[in-house]
Nucleic acid binder design. Sequence first.
DNA 1: GCAGTCAGCCAAAGCGCTTTGGGAGCTCTA
DNA 2: TAGAGCTCCCAAAGCGCTTTGGCTGACTGC
Lengths: 340, 340
Amino acid sequence: MNLKQLSHMLQLSQTTVSRALNGYPEVSEETRRRVTDAAKRHGYRPNPSARRLATGKAGMIGYVLPTGASVDIDPHFVEFLSGLGDYARSHELDLVLSPADADDEETTYRRVAANKQVDAVYISAPRPADRRISLVNQLGLPFLVHGRAEGLDFDYPFLDIDNEGAFHEAARLLVQLGHKRIALINGDDGQTFAIFRERGVRRALASAGLALPPERIRSVAMTEENGYRSARSLLEQPEPPTAIACSSLIMALGVVRAVRDLGLTIPGDVSLVAHDDVFPWLRPEHFSVPLSTTRSSIRAAGARIAERLVARISGLEEGARGEIWPVDLVVRGSIAGAAG
Amino acid sequence: MNLKQLSHMLQLSQTTVSRALNGYPEVSEETRRRVTDAAKRHGYRPNPSARRLATGKAGMIGYVLPTGASVDIDPHFVEFLSGLGDYARSHELDLVLSPADADDEETTYRRVAANKQVDAVYISAPRPADRRISLVNQLGLPFLVHGRAEGLDFDYPFLDIDNEGAFHEAARLLVQLGHKRIALINGDDGQTFAIFRERGVRRALASAGLALPPERIRSVAMTEENGYRSARSLLEQPEPPTAIACSSLIMALGVVRAVRDLGLTIPGDVSLVAHDDVFPWLRPEHFSVPLSTTRSSIRAAGARIAERLVARISGLEEGARGEIWPVDLVVRGSIAGAAG
DNA sequence: GCAGTCAGCCAAAGCGCTTTGGGAGCTCTA
DNA sequence: TAGAGCTCCCAAAGCGCTTTGGCTGACTGC
C-alpha cells in the first residue's frame, strides 16, 4: 500500500493525503480523520526511502564506530546503547553504526554527512581538542557530544558527568580519613574524562597541602590486567600509597587481585575507591570487600542523549547547551582511615 | 555533484554515466575510463537515498536490538561488533540497530522488512524454536543466524561454535582426572548454546557412567553475582562437586570469589573451567589461578558473519549453509586431579 | 549490395514521497 | 455586486538515481 493507492482509494489527491497524515493545517479536520482512519485500516506506512529522498531527513541517528584489528570497543558501550535504544525505540528511531578506520574517522564522518544518512550523530570519548567535533560542526551535521572537549574555540552541545567533582569528592574523603599518599589509576589520559578526574584528585590533595606526583599516577587502557599491573607497581614502591582511586570497575578487579597477591588487605593496608558506570553484570557491592564508588549510570546518559538528539532533530533544542550531571559518592567497606 | 551535473559535464547521458560507473557492459572501455576519472576527480558519489529508492537495495545490514528497562545487552556484543565492524568497514557497509521492545520483536522485524531498510539481518542468541527465524524467513528478508535453533522444520544459514563438543571435551578431561561430581553453571537454558553445553557435559559424564543431576546444574543470567551464588549453593551441598564447568568468564569471577569465601582453593578443592569468548579486558590467564577455558573468539565470529552477510547480499552465497567452528580447550592451572 | 547483428549510446519512465504554486468555491465587506 | 480574503483541495514538479526500450551507425555474411 503506497500513497498513490491510498489516495486513489480515498478519491483524494496524494497532496491532500500526505498533508493530512503529516499534520498540515490546510486540510479539514473531517478529511484528516477519514485519511488517518483509512491509513491505519490498511496499514499504510510511508516508504522511508522515498520520504528521505524527498525531504533529506533520514529518521536515524548515527554513530561512527572506530574499528581495527587492534581497536577495542569500550565495554561500557553496551550499557550506553541500552539506554539509547530504550529511548529511541519509543520514537521508532534507528541507530546507524558506521564503522571507521580508527586512524581515519574523518573520511567516515564526511561520508555520513555527505550521504545524509542520518539526521544527527553523537560523539563519545572526546579528547581535549577533538577534531571530530570541529569537523561535524563545520559539516553542519547536528550532533551531541557525550563527554566534553577542552580548549575548542566554539561552543557545542554536550552531556557529561562531573568527573572532576566526583574524584574531588572521593579524594577529599580519603584525605579526611588521614591518607597522605593517594594514587590514581586512570584511563587513557588523552581523553578528557581522565584529565578531569586527575584534576579533581589533584585539587583535593592540594587543599590539604598534599601532592599527586607522577609516580603515583597511572594512565592506562581500562583492562583488568592493567589494573593489576598498575596497582602492583604502585604498591611495590618504597613509599606505597595507602589509598587508590581507580577509574573503572574492571581495573578495580585487577587492583584487588594485586593487593591480595602482595599479601595486603583492603581496606587495612589500602583503601580503594573506583568509578562505577553501573554494569548489570559486575556490581561494586559484590566485590569481596564491597567497593566504594563514584557512581553514574551510563545507561541513563544514553537515554538522555537519545532524548536530546531527538529534540535537536525536531528543532526543539538549539544552541550549545552543555549539561553536567552530578555523580554520587557511595561509600562501602573498601575505604578506611589511614594506618598510623 | 550529482549524476545530472556529472553527465552534463561529460556530454553524456545519465544512463551512460550510471552504467559506466556500475560496470555494465554496454559502454566502451574508453568512455568508462573517462567517466570514472571524472567521477573520482570531482568526488562524485551516488546519493544513497536515491539509489535505494530506485533499486530497493539499502547498502546496510541490520540487527534488531531487544531493549527495555529490565533488559541487559550481552557484554559480548561489543566484541562481536568489533569483528563485524572491522569487516563491514572494508565494504563501506553500515549497521543499522533497530531497537525493539524485548517482548515484541516481531513488530520491529516486520517494520524493518517492510521498509526495506537493510539488505540483510543477523539474528543472535537463538532459542530452540526461535520465532524470529521463521519470521524473517517468511518475510523473505535475507538473514544469518549467529548460533543455532533446534527443531525448526526448515533449514537456514547459520554460524555457530561447537558448544556441545567444547563442553564435552572439558568435562571429559575432568572425568579423566578422576572427578566424579562435576557441576555446570550455565547460561539461560532457554538459549540453545546452553542446551548444547549441558548436552556436552552430560554425554561426557555418561560415557564414564556418571550422572549430571539437576542439583548440580545452575542456569542463570551471566553476571558475576550469579556465578557467586550458583557456586556457593553448589559447594555448600552435602556432597559438593569437585569440579565446575562454567559458561562465562564473568560468572567465573563470581565462582572464584565464592570458592575463596568458603575457604576453599582452586584447584585443590575445586577444579574450574569456563568458556571464554575472548574479551580484551578480562583474560583467563590473569585470574589469580590461571583459568582453563574453552575458547572461541566471538570477534572472529562477528567478522565472519559480516563476510557471509555480504556474500549473501551480493548473491555469492545461497542456500542454508551451516558453519560450525571447533572450540579450543586451553588447559591452565585451575584444574587438577580429584582429591581422594 | 542488402538484410542482419551488434556495440554504444540516449530519452524517458519509473521508484514513492513532499512541496510549490495555483484555483475553485465560499463568506464577508463596502 | 465586485473584490478581497479565506478554506480546502489538486496537478505537477521535484528529490537523484536505475533501468527499460529504443535508435544509430558500423560491421558482418551471403
